[in-house]
Every structure is written in structure tokens, then in C-alpha cells.
């Protein structure tokens, strides 16, 4: 592990200044991903700027210009967010996604900001002895021809087939959350859909944030459709494992016709995948198995699979059908 200086930032501005001014500096949240990467040699910062205890605020309901929002401070632990009464009552998909992630211990340690900024679990990214364009631009991609069970099927590029591992991010993508950041040019509001990026020819960049841009909060609109929402995660074991595929969904029905639907997928791309094409196909139509399958097929029409990832298509289709039909049954119950 490279020797690193440690500074506990006393303000968000100080933290931004310290990291933005040093290409080898990194923010430290709960450390559940970064400390792992320090040990593995995947991250080699010479300065750690601890932002976990900055006064980002807790979980608070606020009035936004387009209605009420839930403001979540970047330092809020995943466990506290999942336990928040407003999250449980009005944003079940958010609580469910958080509770499906990691373990009870890790959720106490992991922060909201760090969770969104966690890096891929691609085994080659985590193994410094193998080529990886995300870790070392230009070195090549070992995953494309290697162990590919977790690889992307949507939006991958020649240079990178990694997927984003966060469950929280998938729920926030479905909920049209906004990420509030502080950079050297001041505050910025980034829609979740624009936070993470596709790899294209720069897989080393996971997000659209600049180096030294700090996540300070996440704002989630408290909409009616979000009240009937849930998260389905499919994995290799029942608990304490990353998603093979996952589905975040919210549904509002008028009889058996879809008035509004939100759909986002995890485990399929370099970013949480908002399935807008599928949403469009479902909206205004009667909700049934065949219709959902057709909507998923429309969204997946550009999917690229190989013999290791082909399983994701039927798995994702089945998970989406089950999730939406379960939500519909809940609504009529």
C-alpha cells in the first residue's frame, strides 16, 4: 500500500480544494470500497481526504420547485437511509435496494455518496496483475475474453465491458433522483441518468464528475408513483452477493392499464440502465406478461451477449415480468 497522508476535512470547500488540487488525492467516505482498493493496489492515492463526518445533513423532507423531495446528505449510512420512515413508506424501492446490498455491518459503514461512486467489481479491475483499461488505460480488457459472467450486455465498448455494482444507484435512477455536487466552480445538480457514463473510449471515467467534485447530497422527488415500487435482485446466493441482474420498478395503474411506470436495471451496463424504451411501450397499455416481455425485448434490441452473458436476457425478462406483476397484484390487493 502506498503511504498516504490523511486529512479530516473540516468543510466541504476544504475537501474539494484539497482533492481538486492534487491528481493523486481521493475522498474517503466509509472506506468499504476505497480501503479495499488501497490494499489491492487498485487505488494509490497519496492523500486521503476524509469526508465522512462533514455536516452534509441527514435525511430530510423539503419542498422543491416541483413538489416535495427527500434530501439525503452524502454521509448518511446506507443502514440509516433504509431505516428512514419516509423512505420505507414512500420510496420502498429505495429501502429494498439498500437492504439487498452488502451486509448489515457494511451498510452501517457505507455512505450514500460512496455507494454511488463505488467502482466496478470486475475481477480484472481488482487484480493489478491483469490488463484492464479502466484501471490502466490502454492496457487492454481481460474481461472481454475472460471470466464474463458479470459483464455488460448494453452500452459496452471495445475497451470495457464492466458493470456498475451499486443497487442504490439503480433505485435512484428509477426515481429520477438528482445528485448535488460541489466542485471548484461551485454547486451543480446532476440528474442520476447523467451521473454515470458509458465506457466509450474512456472507461477509466465511471462518472461525469470532475476530479475533486464532491457529492454533497441526493434529492429524491416524493412522487405518487414511487409509493408502489420495489426492487428485485437476482444473484448467485440468496444474500451478501452482488447482482447478476436487478430490477427497480414503480407502477401506477388505472384498472389494468398502465398510467405510469418507471423501470431501471442493474447488472447490465456500465451505469444503472433506465429502460425508457420499455417504459414507453408499457405506458397506456394493459399490463400483462406478454406485454412486459415485448417491452423488455424492445429495450434489449441493442443488447450484445456472448455465451457467458446470454443468460442475462431471459433472467432480466423474467425478473422484470415478476416485479411488475407483483406490483400490480399489490395495487389491486
Amino acid at each position: 500500500m502506498r503511504a498516504a497522508e490523511y486529512v479530516r476535512a473540516s468543510s466541504a470547500e476544504e475537501a474539494v480544494g484539497l482533492v481538486a488540487g492534487n491528481p493523486d488525492a481521493a475522498f474517503l467516505g466509509g472506506g468499504t470500497n476505497l480501503v479495499d482498493h488501497l490494499k489491492l493496489g487498485v487505488a494509490r492515492p497519496d492523500l486521503l481526504v476524509d469526508v465522512r463526518r462533514l455536516p452534509f445533513g441527514g435525511v430530510e423532507q423539503q419542498d422543491g420547485p416541483d413538489g416535495p423531495v427527500l434530501r439525503i446528505g452524502a454521509g448518511v449510512p446506507n443502514s440509516d437511509l433504509a431505516a428512514d420512515p419516509v423512505v420505507r413508506g414512500r420510496l420502498p424501492v429505495l429501502a429494498r435496494a439498500l437492504l439487498a446490498g452488502a451486509s448489515g455491518q457494511i451498510r452501517h459503514q457505507a455512505t450514500t455518496g460512496g455507494n454511488l461512486l463505488q467502482r466496478t467489481r470486475c475481477v480484472y479491475f481488482q487484480d493489478v496483475t491483469t490488463p484492464c483499461n479502466k484501471r490502466e488505460p490502454g492496457s487492454g480488457c481481460s474481461a472481454a475474453g475472460g471470466y464474463g459472467r458479470y459483464n455488460a450486455i448494453l452500452g459496452a465498448s471495445e475497451t470495457c465491458v464492466a458493470t456498475h455494482p451499486s443497487d442504490l444507484a439503480v433505485a435512484l435512477a428509477a426515481l429520477d433522483a438528482v445528485v448535488v455536487t460541489l466542485g471548484t466552480d461551485g454547486e451543480r445538480r446532476v440528474p442520476m441518468a447523467d451521473l454515470h457514463r458509458l465506457p466509450e473510449d474512456a472507461p477509466e471515467r465511471d462518472t461525469t464528475l470532475a476530479h475533486g467534485e464532491l457529492v454533497t447530497a441526493v434529492e429524491v422527488p416524493l412522487t405518487d408513483v414511487a409509493r408502489r415500487s420495489t426492487y428485485t435482485k437476482v444473484r448467485d446466493r440468496a444474500s451478501y452477493a452482488f447482482a447478476l441482474v436487478s430490477v427497480a420498478a414503480a407502477l401506477d395503474l388505472d384498472g389494468d392499464t398502465v398510467r405510469e411506470v418507471r423501470l431501471a436495471w442493474g447488472g447490465v451496463a456500465h451505469k444503472p440502465w433506465r429502460a425508457r424504451r420499455a417504459e414507453e411501450a408499457l405506458t397506456g397499455a394493459v399490463l400483462d406478461e406478454a406485454g412486459i416481455e415485448a417491452a423488455v425485448a424492445a429495450e434489449l434490441s441493442d443488447a450484445v451477449t456472448d455465451d457467458q452473458t446470454a443468460y442475462k436476457v431471459p433472467m432480466l425478462t423474467g425478473a422484470t415480468v415478476q416485479t411488475l406483476l407483483d406490483l400490480a397484484a399489490e395495487e389491486t390487493a
Binding site: 490523511y6 474517503l28 466509509g30 472506506g31 468499504t32 480501503v35 479495499d36 486521503l48 443502514s79 448489515g104 455491518q105 457494511i106 452501517h108 459503514q109
Partner: peptide, 9 residues
Amino acid sequence: RRHLTCLAL
């Protein structure tokens, strides 16, 4: 609270 110590500096 229950907490891991291996990923905590």
C-alpha cells in the same frame, strides 16, 4: 453498532 474493522482505517 456492528461494524467491520478490516475496511476501516
